[in-house]
Design a protein around this nucleic acid. Structure first.
Length: 494
DNA sequence: TTGTATT
């Protein structure tokens, strides 16, 4: 086993340079036809898989290993029926995982117990994953939930009711601690079709004596659905997701972040002499706005604070007029001076619009947040005119294909707002350079953000600028932690 | 709290 792994490690460079992914010159056209062939040229072994074979999901695969590299590793446990590395459907890029089906169910079980979380493939931080693919119903697609039973009905009664539609593998009445029926049951058939037939025939078909409504027959919740349901219930109880709780609705934190960022940018631009004092004033207003919102106060500082038609501070030097750091956020308001380059240049050199309104939809949180900024800016036409020129067109959305940038270009970000996804993360870091990828980690069971993620730039200077500007940036009650991503081999002394 | 990816 170990020797095989070493072989793989040594083979990496060759594989990478040859890069034969089987897709030829038109990635995307034949994305999934490159699985391990079924023993071509070896007619004596016509591959057949058991009826009860399990498709395995293989995770944590180095992206430079393809089917032929993986094959030897998995053949240890039995004859392989099919092995397919997952590739991006458009770019053909290796997704770092694969599907594997052995001819025999037993092989899959052996491979899973021998490999899952047991070994780490070269270059990976985490151990290999070997487990039944999500598509392998863990019986859930042939398992029924039966509700509105009579509490007197036994397993046998239920079996009798359902046996006409197929082979029943399992039948369980749900009971409370006292052993009394809860009036519902699980019935598992041998196949999905049988289960479906039972639903069609029995759901709502009759009302059991003592039941408040007609018989319920439906597919049982999957684990995922159960978890989601639980999470939603909890969230409901805790008053989360209540739009009124946050000034800007569910995306309040992001709107605030946008404003802070906008304010910072404007401030730095003003300092660099690119904008007139009016812009500085607007920047100051935005900072106040962001600060106000963070205190949970009304978000309507559309009225200049000191009345009159001349905003305060307009005749004063731009920089001193800007309220220094928004209270607690640890952000100077005059950030990116890294590399001896004026901030404004660092920010705009790439010609990227900091807040692009790409494919606007009403439901898009970015769009909502951006609309808020625009609305605010509209109150100050002079300043906004300047800003509009500074931030030209939205850039075309570059498809995310690359995962990591070069060394020194990859940031690890922690304490992200719960509602941030990949897109929001990217938006937040676009002002500092070319973001080639952004990834927020999501708990697969709950779909909730784990509040950390990665952003990759195409050059180290952008990454440094972003660290300078965004590390310690306060959003709500939290401050972002922004630092260089730990290199792959950290934690590995040898 | 460091790239988690499910045809």
């Amino acid at each position: 086993m170990y020797i095989k792994m070493a072989t793989l490690a040594n083979g990496q460079a060759d594989n990478a340079s040859l890069s034969t992914n089987g897709l030829g010159s038109s990635p995307g056209s034949a994305g999934h036809m490159n699985g391990l062939s079924h023993s071509p040229g070896n007619p004596s072994t016509i591959p057949m898989k058991d009826h009860d074979a399990i498709k395995l999901f293989i995770g944590q695969i180095p992206r430079n290993l393809d089917e032929k590299d993986l094959k030897p590793l998995f053949e240890e446990f039995g004859k392989i029926y099919e092995l397919t590395v997952l590739k991006d459907r458009f770019t053909g890029m290796h997704k770092g995982c694969a599907f594997l089906t052995y001819c025999e169910r037993e092989s899959a079980l052996k491979a899973q117990s021998a490999l899952h979380e047991q070994k780490t493939l070269p270059g990976m931080n985490r151990p290999i994953q070997v487990k039944p693919a999500d598509s392998e119903s863990r019986g859930e697609d042939r398992k029924l939930f039966v509700g509105m039973l009579n509490k007197q009905q036994s397993e046998d009664d239920v079996r009798r009711l359902f046996e006409a539609f197929g082979n029943i593998e399992e039948c369980t009445i749900l009971r409370g601690p006292d052993g009394n029926s809860k009036g519902c049951a699980f019935v598992k058939y041998s196949s999905h079709a049988e289960a479906q037939a039972a639903i069609n025939a029995l759901h709502g078909s009759q009302t059991m004596p003592g039941a408040s409504s007609s018989l319920v027959v439906k597919f049982a919740d999957t684990d995922k659905e159960r978890t989601m349901r639980r999470m939603q219930q909890m969230a409901g109880q805790m008053g989360m997701f209540n739009p009124m709780a946050i000034p800007f609705g569910a995306y309040g934190a992001y709107a605030q972040a946008l404003m802070q960022q906008q304010a910072a940018l404007m401030a730095s631009v003003a300092q660099g002499g690119y904008l007139n004092p009016m812009a500085a004033f607007a920047a100051a207003q935005m900072q106040q706005m962001a600060a106000l919102n963070m205190n949970g106060l009304a978000a309507a500082p559309m009225t200049p604070t000191s009345g009159g038609s001349t905003p305060p501070g307009i005749t004063a030097p731009a920089v001193p007029s800007i309220p220094s750091p928004i209270g607690v956020n640890g952000f100077t308001g005059l950030p990116p001076q890294a590399n001896g380059q004026p901030a404004a240049e660092a920010v705009f050199a790439n010609g990227i619009h900091p807040y692009p309104a790409q494919s606007p939809t009403a439901a898009d949180p970015l769009q909502q947040a951006y609309a808020g900024v625009q609305q605010y800016a509209a109150a100050y036409p002079a300043a906004y005119g300047q800003i509009s020129q500074a931030f030209p067109q939205p850039p075309p959305m570059i498809p995310q294909q690359q995962r990591e940038g070069p060394e020194g270009c990859n940031l690890f970000i922690y304490h992200l707002p719960q509602e941030f996804g990949d897109a929001e993360l990217m938006q937040m870091f676009l002002p500092f350079g070319n973001v080639i990828s952004s990834k927020v980690f999501v708990d697969r069971a709950t779909n909730q953000s784990k509040c950390f993620g990665f952003v990759s730039f195409d050059n180290p200077a952008s990454a440094q600028t972003a660290i300078q500007a965004m590390n310690g940036f306060q959003i709500g009650m939290k401050r972002l932690k922004v630092q260089l991503k730990r290199p792959k081999d950290a934690n590995r002394p040898y």
